[in-house]
């Protein structure tokens, strides 16, 4: 089993709290806006993600999900392995 780290672009309000909280400096704010007009968080350095879930814990909008997946090729929006 591996995990995937998903940021729901359109739920995110771009507050940046997750970016600040991430101990591995994985996250950054996008440079393009989402449907709400915010600059959402994205996995800038997905390979560094250790799935500690600190970002998700701090996210006020439940915009970050971490779930178990079967071993497979990385998909879009997926961070780490």
């Amino acid at each position: 089993m591996t995990h995937e780290h998903l940021v729901n672009r359109d739920k995110c309000k771009g507050c940046g709290v997750c970016v600040e909280a991430c101990p591995k400096n994985v996250l950054a704010l996008s440079e393009d806006v989402n449907a709400k007009g915010y600059f959402p968080a994205k996995q800038a350095r997905p390979d560094d993600c250790v799935f500690c879930a600190i970002c998700a814990t701090m996210c006020p909008d439940v915009a970050i999900t971490i779930r178990e997946i079967a071993d497979q090729a990385p998909t879009e929006n997926k961070g780490g392995k």
């Binding site: 309000k13 879930a53 996210c59 439940v62």
Partner: peptide, 29 residues
């Protein structure tokens, strides 16, 4: 901190009106 993180069932799957960075969302969760 666990490796799985999902929206709890008791929380509705809707966007809140709270401002960016407002901690109400965390407390609700």
């Amino acid at each position: 901190m666990g490796k799985i993180f999902q929206k709890p069932e008791a929380l509705a799957d809707v966007d809140t009106h709270y401002c960016p960075g407002c901690t109400h969302g965390i407390i609700h969760r």
